[in-house]
Structures are given as structure tokens and as C-alpha cells.
Amino acid sequence: KSCSILVTDANFECNEENIMLQAMDNSHIALVSVEIGAPGFTSYRCDRTMPLGVDLTSLTKVLRCAKDENICTLKAADEADVLNLVYDAKSAFFSPFFFAFMWHGRDASSPFPPFFLLCSALLPLFIHLNISLSSQTPITSSWPETKYDTRVTLPSAEFTRIVRDLSQLGEHVRIEVSKEVVRISKLKAKSSAEDEDNDSIPTGVVIEMNQHVSLTFSLKYLVNFSKSGSLSGEVQLLMSNDVPLLVAYDFTQGYIRCYLAPKIGD
């Protein structure tokens, strides 16, 4: 869900150790990188390394059918062009019920199947969903590799609140890191204003730094990144001057990392 805000389609690269996804947004300003290790799943099997090209917008719609208690099984057969999602309602009361359909998620003009609504109404029964896969070129998970001058660790809920609040007030934000303070300042859309409203950061913040850093970013992207906040209690902001920001959410057996190019120049 977090990824689908940034990228519309991407490859899930599957191998014996993990599932990985890496994709840039259309403007090439932001990049999202996700890894979920095999131990993070109740059961995991991958007989052959393969990319699963998935329309994330469609996948998100399908995932909305799931309830919190559902166990979701993802399956893709060898040479198949379909990803199967099976939701198990974990309820002995209902007899197994399979609802199978397939649509071509990559065709944005095709109407959403009307029986999708019926499918939603039938929850929590067993549901069997298919998503058509597209084959794309494999990705390199090592890109980009960067060393950073600063790392700020703070509660992800705080980060979410700060960027959401500031996005009400302006389009851009300046993040400055010195030894003892992180200053996240709203930048007014019009450059006439001289004073900025600073949001001082509360407790639970750890600053590691080699060098003072000051960078300007688009708030719209930071707000989208912060939607991953529910995955981890903490978020790390890794920064160097004139280098893309890395917003990292680490969770058990995996991570979601978002990169954002800074605004540069005067």
C-alpha cells in the first residue's frame, strides 16, 4: 500500500531468501526499495528466482478486501502470468469458498469488475484472487549505495505528524541537522517571508553526525513516505549535503527504504 502511492507498477523479485521490490516514481525524484525476508512469512517457498511484475494500484485494491485477521497467501506458478492471492478467514464457521477472477491490471481504461463489490460483501469467506503479471527486466538491488554524514532516528509517528502538519502550510521543507538539534522548517511557497515556523522535535530522537547538513525537500513525497510509519516504531533519516535523503523503516525480517532527491541551488 505504501509503495502504490509512489509507483504504479513494479517487480517483486523473489528468491530463496526474500522478496524484494525496487522502483522509481514517474518523475524519477523518489525511489522505493522494499525487502521482506523469508523468515518474515509463516511459510515461504521459492523454487526458482523470478520477477513478479505487478500493477500495484490493482494489488492495493485487492488487498483492501483483506481483513486484519485474514492470512494472505501469495502464489505464482512457474511460467504463470497470474499472481494468486488467497485470503483465509480462519473461521471454521464458514465452509471454504473460492472466488476467482482475473483482470488485466495494466489496462487502466478497463472498468473494475462489478462482481468485485460482491466479492467484498462475501468477506470473511475464503477468497481466491488473481492478478495478471507482467514480465519486466530484473532490477539491481544494490543501487543506490551511499554513505551518509548524518543519521537521525525518531519515532515514526512523530515524523508522520511533522510532515503532515507542515504539508498543510507549505510545499517544501528544510531539514537541518547539527550536533544537538534537528530543525525541520517549513519553507513558504513564496520567498517573501523571512521567518519560518520551526518544529522542535520531542524526545526519542537520536542524532548521529559527522557534518552539519541542510537540505530542502518536497513535502508531498515525505508525506507519502510517512505512510509506511505503521510498519515500524522508528524511522531513520540519513542525509548528506546535496545527496538524496534516505528515509528508512526497518521492521522484523525486512525494510522499506525511500530515497528522495533534494532541491539544489539558491
Partner: peptide, 14 residues
């Protein structure tokens, strides 16, 4: 004015 370069300007081509 600040400009918004793409990620490839920083990391090089993918």
C-alpha cells in the same frame, strides 16, 4: 531558484 534534479543525477544511471 532551487531546481529539482532526478535521482540519476546523484546516483548515476541505474
Amino acid at each position: 531558484a532551487k531546481t529539482q534534479p532526478g535521482l540519476k543525477n546523484f546516483f548515476g544511471p541505474k
